[in-house]
């Protein structure tokens, strides 16, 4: 029996650019199963990141639906959608997007604070997550004091903070050198295989995509068969 965590139905997205209506997505249908590691690949401008943003509730589609564990994401108000993101989705960005004035541990702790997790639980869980991404000794460092790879590890730990059902990673290795990128991919594979974390990763890299269970090829806003 399949267990679909996230599903899109006939997703379209268009937006105006210099007076011309651009079709970023043209009827995308896909389903992500629990524990799956899916790579979304395609040329630049094909709509990969737009699709990921819509899947994560960060952007509204022009038409179509997104179901997160069976619930229509866009049927919810902004506050409820924020709650769904907080409790069910973890994000990893290409440019890390850490909070510059908070330490590595505090960055990881931040989503837990949003979820009102008790402080004692937060502290031990932060330590555990930092240990899992290999940054126990960098807990008190500010982002500026960390390397790119370390920042992305912190971002991954932050994505795991509220034990999400799915992690959406938007080119997580895009800003890293190849060696560090390989480490990050290994970390994500480890999380998927050892901890059964469901992963959807947008990438340009065929090597990274090869690590996934399956790849979805996007071209001109459509999934290639």
């Amino acid at each position: 029996m399949t267990n679909i965590i996230l599903e899109t139905k006939n997703l379209t997205k268009s937006y105006p650019l210099n007076g011309v209506e651009v079709q970023a997505l043209r009827g995308v249908n896909l389903g992500i199963e629990s524990g799956e590691f899916v790579a979304i690949v395609g040329p630049s401008g094909c709509g990969k990141s737009t699709l990921l943003s819509i899947m994560g509730g960060l952007m509204f589609p022009t038409s179509g639906q997104i179901f997160l564990e069976g619930e229509d994401l866009n049927a919810h108000k902004e506050r409820e959608k924020a709650q769904l993101r907080r409790d069910h989705i973890g994000y990893v960005f290409q440019s890390f997007n850490l909070l510059a004035d908070l330490t590595a541990a505090e960055n990881v702790e931040f989503p837990m604070v949003l979820a009102n997790m008790p402080e004692s639980e937060r502290r031990s869980w932060v330590q555990e997550l930092l240990k899992r991404v290999g940054l126990s000794d960098k807990a008190d460092h500010l982002p500026d004091e960390l390397s790119g790879g370390q920042k992305q590890r912190v971002a991954i730990a932050r994505a795991l903070a509220n034990r999400p059902d799915i992690i959406l990673a938007d080119e997580p290795t895009g800003n890293l050198d190849s060696a560090t990128a390989a480490e990050i991919i290994d970390l994500l594979i480890g999380l998927n295989r050892k901890d059964s974390v469901t992963l959807v990763m947008v990438t340009h890299s065929p090597d990274d995509a090869a690590s996934a269970h399956r790849s979805i090829h996007l071209r001109d806003g459509q999934i290639e068969n």
Partner: peptide, 18 residues
């Protein structure tokens, strides 16, 4: 200045109120 940080806060589940 911190638009990306605020964007990240919302992406990780922060509501407008929070």
């Amino acid at each position: 200045e911190r638009a990306k940080e605020f964007g990240a806060m919302r992406a990780v589940g922060g509501s407008i109120t929070q």
